[in-house]
Nucleic acid binder design. Sequence first.
DNA 1: AACGTTATGGACGAAGCAGTCAACAACCAT
DNA 2: ATGGTTGTTGACTGCTTCGTCCATAACGTT
Lengths: 198, 198
Amino acid sequence: MARPRKFDEQQVLDTAREQFWAGGYAATRMDDIAAATGLGKGSLYGAFGGKQELFHRVFDEYCRAIVDTTAQQLRGDDKNAYARLSAYVHAVAAATAADTAQRGCLLAKGAAELTEHDEKVAKRAHTAIEALRTLLEDDIAACQRNGDLAADADPGALAALVLAVLRGIEALGKAGANEETLTGIARTALAVLPRPTD
Amino acid sequence: MARPRKFDEQQVLDTAREQFWAGGYAATRMDDIAAATGLGKGSLYGAFGGKQELFHRVFDEYCRAIVDTTAQQLRGDDKNAYARLSAYVHAVAAATAADTAQRGCLLAKGAAELTEHDEKVAKRAHTAIEALRTLLEDDIAACQRNGDLAADADPGALAALVLAVLRGIEALGKAGANEETLTGIARTALAVLPRPTD
DNA sequence: AACGTTATGGACGAAGCAGTCAACAACCAT
DNA sequence: ATGGTTGTTGACTGCTTCGTCCATAACGTT
């Protein structure tokens, strides 16, 4: 009944994410996104509404992806819960260290730039962080059931601590900490988690 | 021999800092700073050079202030080293929670926005972070000498961990974590630091 | 095939932006 | 006091950028 779109919406969102990720929200121009995607501005505005809406789409999708990926890495049986936690924490440190361009995490970057002025971004970031905390708490509780961590510790508190360490690793990566420092933090954080006393 | 300045340079820097802090680098306009300080743009450019240089001045000064404040809070005799560490960690959590406007830390915000594209900002942030790490390490070593923390632990590693937790608290504050969560993280982090075994 | 509907692309408008400039003002050394 | 030097002001320039608009293109339905 009408002319179909020539572009793949997902592909455009991916490209837009790269642009916003590299430059931040304010410094990214819609013309850049148009050029990078090959779309005319009319199509871009027609399909997504505007710069802010486009960023919201990108940010929302990124948050969803982060939480999904983490869920895949942390969910599983009690038996391997500690191994998963350890692997995850080390993976975040390694990924941060490997990010030589120091782009960091779009969740952190977007939140830092826009939380104060954009309610939607603030809410979305909060939801994502809360989801990550829950995933960590579930895994830590599994570790406790399996006897890998002290049963009398508060899993929620430990999850919040680990989450803070992870976000801190990310922040220190931005500040140019080297790989050894970052992996060292991961190692130390895991080492200080309370063990069963028997 | 020449006309003296009518404005206080420090006051202008303070005002500029507020502007950059609230809006970020890209979103802050020189006209805003001019209006907020009451200076004409000519004076502003004459005294500071341009937007980038002005931000460098502000950022440098902010980093210096952060490190100085931390040094005042952490330096002292071995006897009270642990009390100082505890007070400092809790103070950061409380300050982050109290920051209802969620402006966060200019060091983190500036680094997140500009590290990739501005070498000077990257270097300055790195230096500041390294200084903070050293201050923490010195205090932690003092704690060990005084028997408040396990002597066999690596003070450098513990310092890096605590620093990560602190930066993580800051990041979680941006994401809207409530006061209870933040102070809980501070409490848990201190609780998991290794104690002497005797 | 003709038509209604939606997509496309790029020129355009309007506002915003960093930075400049020239006329004027204030100071001090002589 | 006077002149040289530096600070001040705000209008101005030239460029950038968001968003719109419209002529045209491509599709499905009848």
